[in-house]
Design a protein around this nucleic acid. Structure first.
Length: 481
RNA sequence: GGCGACGUAGCCAAGUGGUAAGGCAGGGCUCUGCAAAAGCCUUAUUCGUCGGUUCGAUUCCGACCGUCGCCUCCA
């Protein structure tokens, strides 16, 4: 089955055809590293993470590049975001960059977002950016004024093809304060002259300056992925002007198609309004992780389609936390049973055959433009099936159980990233096992004497330290809260 | 003003030209000393409103209402 992708370039659902068979070259616009990331960033990167993971599951060789913007991204005031961070934190600009790159990686690691193959930084590619700027000047796509170099949008007739915008419409919009030195108000900077007080600056043929924001993505994506590559992703709010400018620069420079498929992720909203730093309505990933597990956050994000918006609320996150806990309960129960099952048991074919249906439903959903919501539904159906099976088959073979476990590991674990490495296995597991069993036995004695207050005291004391005892027909079991 | 997206049960959220996945919450039952977990059953005659096309529309078309995004700050 081929994977179908909704391509923003054509606005159609298209079968994915890689440039090189079985290979995917993919670029995603990364963050500007001047502050802690919030859940909005998490949505974009978790969504794209699952795309990468699914390609890998389908045995594609993926090269994934996600940049880190560490210069040139200006605020509306005209101040560089990094400079702002430096002033705020009272440190060197590059210290800000290092600090928030680490913070970003920590957050992504915590959320189980796989690291890209390459995380290039704009400041490490200034020579290439200068080369591109020169090239675009030579080809007549750019012009220099007072040490600033602008890309001329009129020189690129296809400008607007991604965001479906026309230059005339933009001018009609005209809420912009026009810089007289631009030939067209929509022209954007490739290189900017550094004012005397500007800290981040590099020598260039046009004097000391720094790169514009858009150029880095064109330069770094094609440097590592080729002049034409398969997939370009990012947040939908960057479709214009950022993504549009990337296309214009790259296609004007190389003379052919930039990215074949554009995948844009819908925004995260709060009470219907986009979560953003400027509005102040954000929850940082670090704070979110104090309240919810990484898997719950991923499940929340993946429970709706990546292209659509998702509205954040603590109710929704709590519902996600409960939902994901239920899935983990099933896996925990399954793995417990595996330990006690006959080790060399073989899978019973009739029992295993129907399990393929769930895997197939999952793949069908994912093949359809990564419909994670539908895929998760298949996973919950599967979970129900496993629970039922476990309840009804006391003597399940190890083989059958491990087939079930494999499906969970592959789909919930490897693809969705919503299954922790171990649902309950720890370094000191044996010690903990022993201790808890000892207490459970003790409590068993009280129960035999029907001394419920003492038995319950043990149970609630254990619950206080995070261990839940559960009495069932086959004896007492326990798990961590 | 221009371009675009969305509006499905109490909440979140898939989806299809032929009569509504899944999750959370709620109710009932099984199990159970109690609890928890799990299972079974149950919760939208209806998919913003009004028209049109059709044998038939939530799904296609149009209008309207509402919400939101982008139009050089934003993942």
């Amino acid at each position: 089955m081929t994977i179908k992708i909704y391509n923003y370039l054509t606005r159609e659902l298209e079968p994915f055809k890689p440039i090189t068979p079985r290979h995917v070259n993919m670029y995603v616009c990364g963050p500007t590293v001047y502050a802690d990331s919030h859940l909005g960033h998490a949505k974009t990167y978790v969504s794209m993470d699952v795309v990468v993971r699914y390609f890998k599951y389908r045995r594609f060789k993926v090269r994934y590049v996600r940049n880190l913007t560490d210069v040139g991204h200006l605020l509306s005031s005209g101040e560089d975001r990094i400079s702002k961070g430096a002033r705020r934190d009272q440190v060197e600009p590059m210290e800000v960059v290092d600090r928030y790159i680490k913070s970003f990686h920590d957050d992504m690691d915590a959320l189980g977002v796989l690291r890209p193959n390459i995380s290039p930084r704009a400041t490490c590619h200034v020579p290439e950016i200068i080369t591109w700027t020169q090239g675009l000047l030579e080809k007549g796509h750019a012009y220099e004024v007072n040490g600033n170099v602008y890309f001329s949008v009129e020189s690129f007739p296809e400008y607007g093809k991604l965001s479906h915008r026309k230059l005339e419409d933009l001018e009609a919009g005209a809420r912009v304060e026009i810089r007289e030195e631009k030939r067209n108000p929509a022209d954007f900077a490739l290189w900017k002259r550094a004012d005397p007080e500007h800290i981040m600056r590099w020598p260039s043929p046009w004097g000391e300056g720094y790169p514009g924001w858009h150029i880095e993505c064109s330069v770094m994506s094609t440097k590592y992925l080729g002049e034409t590559f398969d997939i370009h992703g990012g947040g939908l709010e960057n479709i214009f002007p950022h993504n549009e400018c990337e296309i214009a620069q790259a296609e004007a420079y190389h003379g052919h198609q930039f990215a074949n498929y554009w995948m844009l992720v819908g925004s995260l909203t709060v009470n219907g309004v986009k979560m953003s730093k400027s509005l102040g309505n954000f929850l940082t990933i670090k704070d979110a992780l104090k309240l919810y597990s990484p898997e719950a956050i991923r499940y929340f994000i993946l429970s709706s389609h990546y292209r659509g918006p998702v509205d954040f609320s603590s109710d929704a996150l709590q519902a996600a936390q409960r939902g994901i806990n239920r899935l983990h309960n099933t896996v925990r129960k399954l793995r417990r049973r595996m330990k006690n099952a006959p080790p060399a048991g073989t899978a019973v074919l009739s029992q295993v055959a129907s399990l393929d249906d769930y895997q197939e439903a999952f793949e069908m959903a994912m093949n359809d433009d990564f419909n994670t919501s539908k895929a998760l539904a298949a996973l919950f159906d599967f979970s129900k099936e496993v629970n039922r099976y476990l309840d009804e088959h006391e003597e399940a073979s190890g083989g059958t159980l491990s087939v079930m476990n494999k499906i969970f590991s592959d789909l919930a674990g490897s693809v969705m990233g919503i299954l922790p490495e171990s649902v309950d296995e720890h370094v000191n597991e044996q010690v903990i096992d022993g201790l808890v069993e000892l207490l459970a036995e003790l409590r068993q004695e009280y129960r035999a004497e029907k001394d419920w207050s003492k038995a319950d005291a043990i149970r609630s004391r254990l619950e206080e330290i995070g261990i839940i005892l559960e009495d069932g027909p086959r004896g007492t079991t326990w798990h961590l809260k």
